[in-house]
Every structure is written in C-alpha cells, then in structure tokens.
Amino acid sequence: MKHEYIEEHGLVERYLQGTLDRAEREPFEAHFIDCPSCLEELEWAEDLRGAVRAAVAEGVLESPPSGPVRWIRWLGSLEPAPRRALIAATLAAALLLPFFAGRYQRPAAGEGPQLNTPLIYLSAVRGDELSASLQRIYLPQDRGQGRGQSLVLVLEVGSDRAPEEDGAEFGVRLRSSGGELLWESTGLFLNAAGALTLTLPPGFLEEGDYRLEVLGLGSDNKHAKLASYAFRAVSP
C-alpha cells in the first residue's frame, strides 16, 4: 500500500473512526504494523482525538452543536412568521402522521417495561437457501392479541462486513421461506458492538421458516446484500 493512497483516501482518520471496510482495512493494517511513519500518524491522530474530547469534557472547549441543536439554531435565525409556520407544520406532521399511516397504537393498559427480554443471536448463513438445520427461535407463549414477551434478534454484522462509506447505513429485509418480502426497514446503524438489534413485538412472527437479509447502503444509495440470517420460529 502506498502512502499517496493512504493520504488521498484519508485512511488514518477512517481507520480510527472504524469506517474502513475489510478490503481496505486489512491491507492497511498489514502495512502500518510495519511502517513507523504511518504508526506515527495514527498515534498522533489518536492522541489529538483524545485531547479534543478531554477538552470538551473539561469544559475548556465548547461542545459542538448536535443535529437537533443545529436545527433549533437555524430555526432561530428565521424571520418570526416563517418560523412560526414551520414549527406549526412540523408539530402537525409529527402528531398526525402516525394516524394517517395507520400505525398509531394506544399503549395497552398496564403496559410497561419488559424484563429479561430474550436476546437471540443469529449467525450469518451462506447463500440464499434455507439450510436443513435452521437456528430455532421459540415464540413467546400467550403471543396472541399482542400480549406476551417481545424477542430481540441480534445480528452481529461487525465492521468486517460494513460497507466502505463513512457512516454506513444498513437495511434489513425479512422474508418468508418462499422468498416473500414480509417487512423491511432502512436507515439503520450498527451499535457499538458492531451489531444490529431488532425488537420483534409479540405476535409479529408465526411458526415457520424465515430469512433476514442485511443490506449495506452506501453514499451512492446502492444496496448490497451483506449477510443473510435464517431461522425457524417454533412454538415452545
């Protein structure tokens, strides 16, 4: 790996941010582990990052505005009339959209935190076919009418499979054994452990075989399937 490439593609900062994909990360590691100048760049970048964070934590540097704060500041910069109109429109949209989407559900009486929600770690499978020895997921008892426990599926995607773009977004598709698309969602991000977690409400799954596909969404808005997870939902 050449230093020109490392500089041009910002590998030092991207490596420390954990946003390099495997195809770039492995050669970069193999290079810098034996390259004093790259090690030096990495170590000073690490140190500056830590120092900046320490400065913010110490209060000697002002914390940068977060997304919502920036939005509020921008709102404050508007003239009063358009600002009022925008706030009213946003509030109306936030209140009414769930009703129009048919997704609003009043919390059931007595509904509260769930304790010891089962965590189910799924392992990626090769190819698209459902294998004979599917991982079994036991559906909660008393799942009718939306009662019973939720299930949390943990998909350990890991940075090894993350797309190369910074701040990579992921999508998830749930398919039946016949390939029918049952549910999908996009705009997901890995948690700190490199995993995606999906909380399935009680009654969401029926008995049967399923396949979850994790898709990577790069900044070019192109989807690519990164991993598949197959499981069989059974009653206990």
Binding site: R14, R49, P64, D166, G167
Partner: peptide, 15 residues
C-alpha cells in the same frame, strides 16, 4: 466546528 463534530460526535466526513 468541523473538527469538533468529527472528533466529538463522530459524524461521518461526507455529512
């Protein structure tokens, strides 16, 4: 602001 957002909030560079 760029440096602080990158280091503190870890916002992605393109954003």
């Amino acid at each position: 602001e760029m440096i602080l957002r990158f280091y503190v909030h870890e916002e992605p560079k393109p954003a």
